[in-house]
Design a protein around this nucleic acid. Sequence first.
DNA 1: CGAGCAAACTTTCCATTGAAAAGATCTTTT
DNA 2: AAAAGATCTTTTCAATGGAAAGTTTGCTCG
Lengths: 213, 213
Amino acid sequence: MESLLGYDRSVTYHHGDLRRTLLAQTASAIAEDGVAKLSMRALAKRAGVSNAAPTYHFGDKAGLLTALAAEGFDLLAEAMSGFGDGGGAHSVGDRRDGAADAGGDEHGLVARGVAYVEFALACPSHFTVMFQPRLLREDDADLAAARQRAGAALSVSVAETRSGPDADFGVAAWSLVHGYATLVLSGAVEPEDALKQARAVAAHLVADGGGTV
Amino acid sequence: MESLLGYDRSVTYHHGDLRRTLLAQTASAIAEDGVAKLSMRALAKRAGVSNAAPTYHFGDKAGLLTALAAEGFDLLAEAMSGFGDGGGAHSVGDRRDGAADAGGDEHGLVARGVAYVEFALACPSHFTVMFQPRLLREDDADLAAARQRAGAALSVSVAETRSGPDADFGVAAWSLVHGYATLVLSGAVEPEDALKQARAVAAHLVADGGGTV
DNA sequence: CGAGCAAACTTTCCATTGAAAAGATCTTTT
DNA sequence: AAAAGATCTTTTCAATGGAAAGTTTGCTCG
């Protein structure tokens, strides 16, 4: 029977973890071929379930990508937290290569900027989807909540450096790291050593002492 | 006859300008619903031709988007040229709102950064596609050529400001304007007055006098 | 313990899509 | 005028997203 179906019903039925599995498979599928070529059916095959299983869990393709984006914003919020206040730097994902996080006493804002880039490069699928609202259900509550958490983490990063509410500087800092991450991911900038370069790039901004335009 | 076909054959057959028309319709379709929802068939209807007409001109969907991206890189190169050497500022597209280009004696690099953002906001469909290589035919010769022209224009902009070959600074400047444009286009940053803010943002970087990390 | 009930997943079906193949029409060249 | 080539159409097919209805599983309540 199972050889005909292509999957073992006793295992897949009430998988228990299918939602998480689908999200993970989605991320790796996007990382391989891009979000444009993501197919719900191929995803289902990849996870060893039937065509309609992903649709059941996420409603439709936009729902799937929305869930991925929400997960991404939470990962980003996590990656940006725990720098200054003794929490110790959390590296994205499982890797702990030391070198990237070792420079402990570099400028706090630079460290967080590097963390932003580090996240984008470690989770390219999440990052890509997070900033393509056309692909998402913008009215999704979970997405809004996760986005707000990430936004708060970003604001804190800037506020720690600049006491006054200098909105322009915050936007500039965000633009810098976001742009660098985007350019590297799109292949426009060759990343010999992306994180080292990111640190140098970020330092250009922080080196600006004044800030009044 | 024509009422049955849905188009006037005497007009559409050997349209003479169909390729350009299709590119323009593609740009506006993407601007409306995003590139993910772009349909070759809907595009054909929009242009008043049959299903296969777009495929004939561009090979396939990737070919269409590649042509759009190449056009975008040429528009960008044009937008970035003609600042310092007396050419006068060329505004993107047809609009000439004066205010955006009027501040003649602001820092040259800032002016070019603003031009970059101005282009991205004026041609969002081109800009979006230009930096999504997964959607394109990367081996396309026209794309490579146009991209190189734009790259050269960008390099000149930076080189005019910094004499020495400070690669990091160039990447930082590009990242800043590219990131700001991307964030505005994705809706992540609210553009009260996007260009004014862009100028302020860019000034943060230029205000950095030294540059050595 | 078993009957119902909701959750999780499957099967089937349909409209739309991208692309290939082959045909029709117009323009240009010779 | 005849041939050749460019431009556009018609037809066709496999793949896709999604809707609808059916089936299996686990849980709850009597």
